[in-house]
Each structure stands twice: as C-alpha cells, then as structure tokens.
Design a protein around this nucleic acid. Structure first.
Length: 258
DNA sequence: ATGGCACTCACAGAGTGA
C-alpha cells in the first residue's frame, strides 16, 4: 500500500494537480490538508471518476482535511473520526479512517504564528490533545500512520538555514519537544528510516525564489507505528509538483508499505 | 529591519499562512 500526504493550499485551485499527481503516483491513500473549502464544495464526484473515494472534514476559507482512497481498498465506514475527540475546535484539522486494517490519521497541525502569541499557545494545546488521542489510537490500532502538515521541522538538518531560523516558529524548542513526545509514543519518522540526501525539504516559501534556492523546511511528515515501520520499504518527498504552474507551496511525502 | 507570494472573501485590502 502506497500512502501519501500533501498540503494542497486550496483544493479548488489544486484539484487538477491532485488528479494529475494521483495518475502518475498511483498512490493508494492520499491525505490532503488546507482544502480551504466547505464540505458541499468538495470535488468528490470528480475524484470518484478518477477512481478515488474521499472522506473529508472541511470549512470555508481555512483549514480542512481529507483522505482519498483508491477503489478496491477496504475502508471501515464505521470508524471514521473527525477532529480530536474531546478537544472542542471549530477548525477542521483531523480526519482518521481505517483502510485495509491500517489506521490512517490525516492532520493539519496549527501554524502557531510565533512563540509567545495566542496562536502559538493554541498550537501547543492542540499538540498535547493530539498526543493523548494518538496514544489511545495506538492502543486500538497497532498498525497506525500519522500523516500530514506538522508545521514542525524536527531537527536542524530539516532547515535550510538553521541559524536564521533558530528559536522561530516551526523550529522552536517547545514545538520540537512536542514532536519528540509523539515519537515517544512509539512512532518512527518514515523519512529518517532510510538513507536520504542532504537538504531535502517539503515546503518552500512562495517568495524570494525560495524553491529555486532550495530554501525550504521539512515540515510534512509520515510517522509510523513499529508494525508499519517494519514493512515500510521507502519514504520520499516528490518535488515535481512544486515545479508545476501555480503550485502548492508544499510537496507530497510518500511512503511505500510492503 | 522589512517585505517579498498566494489564497479567500468580495470587490479593497485585511487575515492567514510558514
């Protein structure tokens, strides 16, 4: 099973990119973030025509997450979860589904704006709630994958200019500690299970020709439980869609299970 | 030091993102 995550920065604008990418990647499961559209505008008919069923939690203008599943894969319809149970939040950031016995959790972590702001405090509260919920999900589902836009660059090697970014949002010690807490639940960063080239990132600012300069961050991740990490044969970031016309500022991250 | 780009809503320019 090939699983992937992609922050598309508006599914309305990037609908054709998603369809084109699914056609070439043949991903079985694609987790999407930043749909930026309400559920009634989700293009489920167009995606179904291309062979993918979809489950989603959207809202107008901001946030929104979805899971696309290739026809033929078994989805447990009784076990779809939207948002973090017990964490009241109007922002649509989480959707989970069990696909072929694998618990797939798609998450759009809060940006956080800057340390010390109210949005940063919300990010830390959200991270704590996610941690506790993931712990309970792992107890129920030994085969679990947490995919999404984490808005955290875990280590300095995930940052193009660690000195310039030191202490800033996305790399601050508090955020990195929260990432380590997730790892502490028994999850593994799929990307780091394999030998990788230096300076591989998943996001580049639209400004300052950041992509051409490879001035990026690795903030989109696939974390796997031990049972899945044992069968994971590759994990890569696909930079190709970032080169297309009118691209998302994020690139897809892909893991092959089995 | 600041802004730089893109998207949404809505029709100007603010809010948000990372």
């Amino acid at each position: 099973m090939k699983i992937a995550t992609w922050n598309v920065n508006s599914l309305k604008v990037r609908q054709q990119h998603v369809i084109d990418w699914l056609e070439t990647s043949r991903a079985d499961v694609l987790c999407l973030q930043e749909l930026k559209l309400p559920d009634e505008k989700f293009p489920h008919v167009e995606l179904a025509e291309k062979g993918y069923r979809s489950w989603y939690a959207g809202q107008k203008t901001y946030n929104g997450v979805g899971i696309l599943v290739r026809d033929g894969l078994n989805v447990d319809e009784s076990n779809i979860v939207r948002n973090i149970p017990g964490f009241e939040d109007p922002q649509q950031r989480v959707i989970a589904a069990t696909i072929e016995g694998v618990r797939i959790i798609c998450a759009y972590f809060p940006n956080g704006q800057a340390p010390g702001t109210e949005k940063f405090a919300y990010k830390l509260r959200w991270l704590a709630a996610l941690h506790d919920w993931i712990a309970s999900e792992m107890a129920l589902h030994p085969k679990l994958a947490l995919l999404g836009d984490y808005n955290i660059a875990p280590e300095d090697r995930d940052v193009h200019d660690p000195k310039a970014w030191e202490g800033q949002n996305l790399v601050s010690p508090e955020e990195r500690a929260a990432f380590v807490q997730l790892i502490g639940l028994g999850l593994l960063d799929a990307f780091r299970q394999f030998e990788q080239q230096d300076k591989i990132y998943s996001w580049w600012d639209y400004r300052m020709m950041a992509f051409r300069r490879n001035a990026g961050l690795r903030i989109d991740h696939i974390l796997l439980s031990k049972a899945l990490a044992d069968v994971c044969s590759s994990c890569d970031i696909d930079k190709v869609p970032r080169k297309w016309d009118q691209p998302s500022d994020h690139a897809p991250v892909v893991a092959q299970l089995g």
